[in-house]
Simulated assay, not measured.
Amino acid sequence: MRYDLQSMFDITGEVAVVTGASRGIGREIAMAMASLGAKVVLVSVSAMHLFKTVSDLQDQGFDVIGIPADTTKKDSIQAMADQVFQQFGKIDILINCAGVAHLENAIDFEEAMWNWVMEVNLKGTFLTCQAIGKYMVKQGKGRIVNLSSVLGLKGRAQDMAYSPSKAGMNQLTKSLAIEWAKDNINVNAVAPTFTQADAERGLLGDKAMYEKILSRIPKGRLCEMEWIVGPVIFLCSPCAEFVTGHILYVDGGWTVS
């Protein structure tokens, strides 16, 4: 048998929905999928940032549109899913990138912050999978990739909500994979370690915490966002036909060291 690598990774003409797509890794994934020929719907709660990103990508010749939606609100995310299906007649791929984080000592961690992180990271992922999943079940196929984190397996100090939310996302991924396997829907997660963008946003804490995190990564450096894009594309492609319920760690060896 001869293998055609181009067709094995071909997503040309696929309709992909990417949440949290106005910036960061969501934007990178949306741009990568569009560059490979997919029709990409960018979703974000921030309309201003969303439409700026959409305009930037359209100016580069990418086939993208933007739909503002709040993934934590069932009516909002269902309306988005309905709009995508009405416009394109199918939804092939869903990438859940919407996420937030908050660092604070456990005894001072406010309930409101706990609820916010859990609502966006876990509840929002479920509601989006549910809304898009209805269409994927009807059409008998689909690919879902949830952006998790190495912290879904490895905890850290002052991280009382983000780590548990990502651990919950991992279990949600596995449960959906089992339930929807019969419908030819693959559900996986990509779990990266910290990126340089995280450092720039102050999510690594003080210098001591930064050095401690870096020491745990056998490759000795933070992850670049483009290194996350490849595994996501793989899981969305025909090449990953028999991969479902998998948590793919993009962590420089952290979880095995």
Rank of each mutant, 00 (worst) to 15 (best):
A79Y: 02
Y135A: 11
W114L: 12
G99L: 04
I91W: 06
M118K: 09
T125L: 03
K90D: 15
W114C: 03
F109L: 05
G124P: 01
F109V: 05
Q139I: 06
L94T: 06
D82V: 15
T128V: 11
Y135T: 05
M113S: 14
L103T: 09
Q139W: 01
Q86N: 13
G140D: 02
A98L: 14
S76E: 13
A98D: 12
D108I: 06
N96K: 06
F85N: 14
A81S: 14
L94K: 08
C129V: 04
V84P: 04
E104Q: 13
K74A: 13
Q87P: 05
K73W: 06
T72M: 10
T125D: 00
V84L: 10
G89Q: 09
I132Y: 00
L127V: 06
M113A: 15
E104P: 00
K138A: 14
A106S: 11
V117W: 04
G89C: 13
T128L: 04
K134H: 12
I107D: 07
M118G: 07
E119C: 03
Q78H: 14
M113Y: 05
G133M: 05
T125Y: 01
M113H: 09
E104W: 01
N121Q: 09
A81R: 05
V117T: 11
F109W: 07
V100T: 15
Q78I: 07
Q87C: 10
G140I: 03
C129I: 07
M136D: 01
K134T: 10
C97E: 01
G89Y: 10
A106C: 11
G99K: 02
M136V: 07
N115A: 14
V117Q: 06
N115M: 13
G89N: 11
G89R: 13
H102T: 09
L122E: 01
G142S: 09
A101K: 09
K141N: 05
F109M: 04
F88N: 12
W114E: 01
Q87N: 14
K123M: 06
T128W: 03
G140H: 01
E110L: 12
V120P: 00
K123T: 10
R143W: 00
G133W: 02
W114D: 02
D75R: 08
V84T: 12
G124W: 01
E110A: 12
T72S: 13
D92I: 10
I91V: 12
F109Q: 02
L94V: 08
F126M: 07
I91H: 04
T125Q: 00
I107F: 08
I77F: 07
A79F: 02
A112I: 12
E110F: 11
G99H: 05
W116L: 14
C129G: 09
N96A: 07
Q139H: 05
Q139G: 03
L122P: 00
W114G: 02
S76Q: 14
F126A: 02
G99M: 06
K134P: 02
F85C: 09
Q139K: 07
